[in-house]
Amino acid sequence: MTESVVKVRDLDLVYQSGNEAFPALSDIELEVGAGEVLGIVGESGCGKSSLSSALLRLLPPNGRITRGHVFYKDLDLLEIPETRMRQFRGAELAMIFQDPLTSLNPTFTIGTQMRDVQRAHGGGSLSRAQIYRRSVEMLEQVGMPDPEDRLRSYPHEFSGGMRQRIMIAVALMLKPGVLIADEPTTALDVTLQAQILSLLRGLCKEEGTATIFISHDLGVVAQICDRVMVMYAGRVVESADLFSLFDEPLHPYTRALLRSIPSRNRRGSRLVSIPGRVPSLSALPSGCKFVNRCPHAQDVCRATEPRFLDIQGHRVRCHAYDSSSGFRDAGVVTADRFGD
């Protein structure tokens, strides 16, 4: 892998409520290289969005990072002052949200909003003509017809797909090193989703942007990502390159996720459903967090939290793969491959 642009080490995040602290993220490790797309998947409530907020230091007032580092290139973003961080957001670290309409100001034209972003970060060094040219160029890149005319339009005059294109244009306008896309296609139809995914992947490869793509849809992740990280209850439970993860998922949670996707191969048979729900942050089990939904759970799983193992680059947090954990009959778990 090329040198990583973003690197997160041992990150812990808690949400404070009264006298209690709820651990939302724990021991997060990730790395994304230039031009690489990292997918983050998991059910709702597993901490995907908390993680993206933590990376940008946009946490709600009761959110506190208690440990760890977020490196952008060689700089620890958790160490720099807020004023410096503010210059970074939007310019070096860009984000695309799920709902473009709430991210665009309805009272200004697209052109004005694109201009303001450039002025805020350009420090007055850019001429009006330069700003205009760059705006038009970006709209062209994201496949907007008649970009010069459309700069004079307001957000409500665009369709959902076009708005998401505008968000991508704004996010990539200042050539950020990192792009975080939080469920960017969830609100779109499949035909538009396919357009946006291929656009996003193309631009990230072309510009060498390190991209973190958050989604709950494994199908989408399979289309756009190079590597995938599976989260559960605030932890990374598995992380691997795209092909290993889909061909040989190791964690029982990842396997269950993949098997619960409805498709024609499963016609007539029951879909695997994961019993129970993601535990709430106030009632996390003490050992492995997946223990009360896992078909293979044993005493050791209830007692101690598994380590984040590295099996030839394929990382997994499960006792069954740790020979020193005392997990019995590990062969049952390791043999329970996808593709039954």
């Binding site: 499949v190 035909t191 291929s198 849809d217 199908g219 989408v220 399979a222 289309q223 498709s263």
Partner: peptide
């Protein structure tokens, strides 16, 4: 429509470009 449906199969990404 069918070709644009994302499938949990990473091999489709390279070989099989959806007809957008």
């Amino acid at each position: 429509l069918l070709s644009t449906v994302p499938k949990p199969d990473p091999r489709r990404k390279d070989g099989h470009a959806p007809s957008l």
